[in-house]
């Protein structure tokens, strides 16, 4: 089993009021010097079998058609290295 991570973020030109609300709360928590926060989504896909080019191509299709709405969002797909190690450390 391998883990593929799909990160989805609003496009830079799209207003993100949730991110702004988080950013505005930071000074109250004593965090200074953070000028902008943008909030996105992370999907962790546990893939049965090998993550070869064909599997990644299918996941990219899935991300483009379903996990992200490319009218408003960008996405990245990456294979998480050492996923099993992290699992064992829990």
């Amino acid at each position: 089993m391998a883990r593929v991570v799909v990160d989805v973020m609003l496009k830079p030109e799209i207003l993100d009021p949730q991110g702004q609300a988080v950013q505005r709360a930071l000074p109250r928590l004593g965090f200074e010097g953070i000028s902008d926060v943008r909030q996105g989504k992370r999907f962790e896909l546990e893939v049965d079998g090998p993550v070869d080019e064909a599997a990644l191509a299918r996941i990219r299709d899935l991300a483009e058609s379903f996990l992200a709405n490319t009218v408003i969002e960008d996405f990245t797909v990456k294979v998480e290295e050492g996923a099993e190690v992290a699992e064992a450390a829990k």
Binding site: L10, I14, L15, P17, Q18, A21, N69, V71, I72
Partner: peptide, 17 residues
């Protein structure tokens, strides 16, 4: 309808949350 791309554009959360 926007998600199905039968209509252009997309819907997002109200700007005032």
């Amino acid at each position: 309808l926007t998600e199905a791309h039968l209509l252009p554009g997309a819907m997002l959360g109200n700007d005032h949350l």
